[in-house]
Design a protein around this nucleic acid. Structure first.
Lengths: 349, 349
DNA sequence: CTGAAAGCGCTTACAG
DNA sequence: CTGAAAGCGCTTACAG
């Protein structure tokens, strides 16, 4: 078997405890000489502490879960925009000597199971919507340090970290208005009373109002956050609302599909229609023209998430409010003045 | 604290052991009546077994590591093409009641550490290159069930699962030759004697030879697998080798950058130059024209990876050979006959 | 500054 | 079919 604390203790001629203290860096409790000798042996023998023994004996597992919704027999849907978060989460945790367990959640009970079975110190909820988070009770999550990314739930059991979705929408739509657009559509997935998409919608509506543009419910489109969703919407929009000169979307991928759908109907971007995306994913610069979009700092969001978890673990009080990170509009090539507004592109070039 | 085996045993009036047997489904050892009674209580009390206690006592942790190379202070580089694999890996494992631990590896010693500290039953190596895998010794990895994805290493310590890279290149380059191309470049990252890129290169070279096309070393370009890498290469290629009419690339992202670089120099795809990508990532259909590319079945690869690990855990003999999965060329819009070959596009339209 | 004891929640032989 | 004992490798009080 692998070498254990006992082996090291025997070789060093000290007790288990002393080795344990040294390994865990409780310096004050061991003389420098002893410490160095033990560290030598630990290194020579290639001792690696047993995490399961440690979790069992201590109250801490040094394990954080990354919980992601998943259909039962289905793979995790990891959107391109969450991938980046995963990598950063892992790094931040690794640097603090924590480990990341990735777990798909098909039923709510699996949250409890994941948390309890591995005695997770904390967990981040990625991709759950607000109603799901609202429903979390102490019975389900115990008192694990929980952080929900992109949540607007007021459930005190799960701290929220998100970016300024309302402000992002404001920036995007203001930009469109400043360019001269008046008939601006909103395209995103169905939303409820709360959540990321709702916030962006409110930002959109607020800017319209502030600029004296009447809100038109028929300009709000329920579009799935996929390329196909955007594409279908682009065609539909051309047929049903050729008067629309700009669209604010809730995701780059949707915006890119939209642009293709528009093109399929002979309408160019930004010549005939301006389009603004959201996320500033890598994709945004791979397409032509490059996408004007709202950028959020994912690494920053992930780092903040880890910080919140660590604060909670360190026994700090729960913060009063959610954490909101800034966003900014990245102007590229898909938003322009409504020069040739209306009609198809075919005869206008 | 949470409810334990002991609590259940007490409530059911049986021994710890009996509950343990029931929970672990060792049916033969407990009467049906007792079993049902225990199961009831387990459910009512919401008992969740402690994974750390179990790993400590048993020889199995039911934990599989996903080890990914990572610079020290850097996030994991999760290429879009590996993301899909992660999701599928998680699902397959979850269905078998295993868990996935995601771990970035900065130094080789961290592999040992990850494996030993959590007593991982198995691990998949994702994104390591062949020389790194060659260097793995029993001292580093013990006898954990190890599977390296996309590896051509002959190291018996890490079984390999990959797709038919040689064949994929053959299909792509044959297609180009059939279209009438003779000056076909190869663009991919630097490669050594073995590995994925080397295989694709050999496939490329083999097809050229089979068709009586002299191999030209100056047509083999060392290009980083990024959009920027492809873009720079596109510009360079136009200036230095305007006679090239087709490029076979080792990644979609590189191909997309290449197309943009070509366009920046006034050359169109596929009008002036044909381009074939690799991976059939989502990206491939987001760009215009849609990318002709070689598709590999990532979910299948992930499933096969899990199967190999489980076989090893079940004590089956190590397979004789690596597992190789099929690939296929997806013809879309970036490969066409070399109609207007040579020169820039500006005056040829 | 260092140590002996108890215990974390399980499973593994081994008895009956 | 069921149980009492030992032990997995640690940490946590508590003594000295």
């Amino acid at each position: 078997m692998a070498v254990t604390l006992k082996d090291i203790a025997a070789e060093a001629g000290v007790s288990l405890m002393t080795v344990s203290n040294v390994v865990n860096g409780k310096q004050a409790r061991v003389s420098a000489a002893t410490r160095e000798r033990i560290l030598r042996i630990v290194k020579d023998r290639g001792y690696v502490p047993s995490a399961s023994a440690r979790s069992l004996a201590a109250k801490s597992s040094r394990l954080v879960g990354l919980l992601v919704p998943a259909e039962d027999r289905t793979s995790l849907t990891i959107s391109p925009h969450t991938v980046e978060a995963i990598g950063t989460l892992e790094r931040e945790l690794r640097q603090l000597d924590y480990h990341l367990m990735l777990r798909g959640i098909a039923h709510r009970a699996e949250i409890t199971e994941a948390l309890r079975s591995w005695q997770l110190d904390g967990a981040v909820l990625l991709g759950f919507n607000d109603p799901e988070i609202d429903r979390l009770t102490a019975g389900v999550v115990g008192d694990v340090a929980l952080v929900a990314m992109d949540s607007y739930s007021e459930n005190p059991l799960a701290l929220g970290v998100r970016s300024d979705d309302f402000g992002g929408a404001e920036q995007a739509v203001s930009h469109l208005v400043a360019l001269g657009h008046r008939r601006i559509a909103f395209a995103g997935p169905a939303f409820s009373a709360t959540g990321v998409v709702r916030q962006r919608f409110e930002g959109y509506r607020t800017v319209l109002e502030a600029n004296g543009i009447a809100f038109d419910q028929s300009l709000v489109a329920d579009v799935e956050t996929t390329h196909a969703g955007g594409l279908a919407y682009g065609r539909r929009l051309t047929r049903e609302r050729p008067d629309v000169t700009a669209v604010f979307t809730t995701a780059d991928i949707l915006a890119i599909g939209l642009i293709e759908g528009l093109a399929a109907e002979g309408r160019s971007v930004p010549g005939d229609v301006s389009v603004i995306g959201y996320d500033d994913s890598d994709l945004a610069v791979y397409v032509t023209p490059k996408l004007t979009t709202v950028a959020q700092d994912l690494p920053d969001k992930a780092a903040e998430t880890v910080r919140l978890i660590m604060d909670r673990l360190a026994g700090k009080a729960r913060p009063e409010h959610h954490t909101t990170l800034g966003v900014r509009l990245i102007e590229r090539g898909t938003a322009a003045p409504p020069a040739r507004q209306g009609g198809g592109a075919a005869g206008t070039a």
